[in-house]
């Protein structure tokens, strides 16, 4: 809706694409189908196969007995096996009804960008809504850490639609606060802050969904992520924009950030190649790092429907 006033407070007037709208987030409830965070995954799901993690949890179906790892619930220690082998072993069950899901929703300024259809921040909000509704539909508890450049809001995991609504409201509030005119200073450190908080919050066997563009990730974030993934299942929803991946050949373009301008001649083929390769490389390294920690990555592009993308990655062939 071009030409509309930039009214970031009045929710009904918020232009679609630029800002998330409550009705869209609510509509996600009905679209949160065709995929699952549960262990039984469709063949084409990211979560299926050798190298992918099986989502673990407490439940009735016995999976295996393995060496005790720090963080395992001591109630799951199989004392008999432990006594026999003189090494601590614990039982692992699949299917856990009471598993909490924690959503890390990034709404920082770096997310306030998009070249097609919607902003990254909107994509993240929709993805978070999708996940929240899905988790709720699975009768699991859902909580969230919604953060922007200067604040971090925590919603304790609970199994209720009201909690989901609270999460969505926090996301919306932060989403609508995003504006270039507001003079918000980017704070890359907020990602680590959120991860730290998550580390404290998600003790074990949680599903942690990080929905972010990964801006500001550094050694510490990797460390934190490693720790979190040790005890929890982590899903990384990598929000990105096509323009971040590839520059169009459109002649000289002026880019700007924080008052700095850069004029780049996009007709320059080697430059465009370098740019693409750079993005691919950093993405590949991130993916590699995350996969080592059994963390699947779901790329979420701004120019496609979020539910479709998630379903494609997690749902395999569309059912129904």
């Amino acid at each position: 809706m071009p030409g509309q006033p930039r009214n970031k407070q009045a929710e009904p007037a918020a232009p679609a694409g630029a800002y998330a709208r409550m009705e869209d987030l609510l509509a996600m409830r009905h679209r949160a189908r065709g995929f699952s965070f549960l262990p039984r995954q469709p063949v084409h799901s990211l979560l299926a196969g050798r190298h992918n993690s099986r989502l673990r949890g407490r439940g009735l179906n016995f999976e295996e007995i393995r060496r005790y790892q720090p963080g395992d619930d001591i109630r799951q220690i199989d004392w008999k096996v432990t006594a026999r082998t003189r090494r601590t072993h614990s039982r692992v069950f699949t299917e856990e009804r009471e598993r909490s899901t924690l959503l890390l929703v990034d709404q920082r300024m770096s997310m306030f960008f998009g070249s097609r259809k919607r902003m990254k921040s909107v994509t993240a909000a929709e993805a978070a809504a999708l996940a929240a509704w899905r988790v709720l539909a699975q009768q699991d508890r859902v909580g969230a850490l919604v953060f922007n450049d200067h604040e971090l809001v925590e919603v304790r995991p609970q199994r209720s639609a009201a909690t989901v609504m609270r999460i969505l409201q926090h996301i919306l509030k932060q989403n609508h606060a995003l504006s270039l005119q507001a003079g918000i200073r980017g704070n890359p450190g907020m990602l680590n802050e959120a991860l730290r908080h998550c580390d404290r919050l998600a003790k074990h066997d949680n599903l942690v969904c990080i929905i972010s563009d990964g801006a500001g990730q550094d050694e510490e974030s990797r460390h934190l992520l490693t720790r979190i993934s040790h005890r929890n299942d982590v899903l990384f929803g990598f929000v990105h924009d096509p323009l971040e991946a590839e520059l169009p050949a459109a002649g000289p373009l002026v880019f700007e950030a924080a008052g700095n301008q850069l004029e780049v001649d996009t007709h320059h083929q080697p430059l465009r190649d370098r740019y693409r390769e750079d993005f691919e490389a950093s993405r590949a390294s991130g993916r590699h790092f995350l996969l080592q920690r059994e963390t699947p990555v779901i790329p979420l592009s701004t120019d496609e429907d979020v539910a479709d993308q998630v379903r494609r990655r997690l749902g395999g062939v569309r059912r129904r």
Binding site: M111, V254, A257, N260, Q261, E263, L271, Y275
Partner: peptide
Amino acid sequence: PRRGLVVPFLTRLARVAGQQPGNGAA
């Protein structure tokens, strides 16, 4: 001064392009 598009990836672009972002106008 020119109109620029505010992008989150300026530093990366500057690194790739081997250019130094200026304070707006050149």
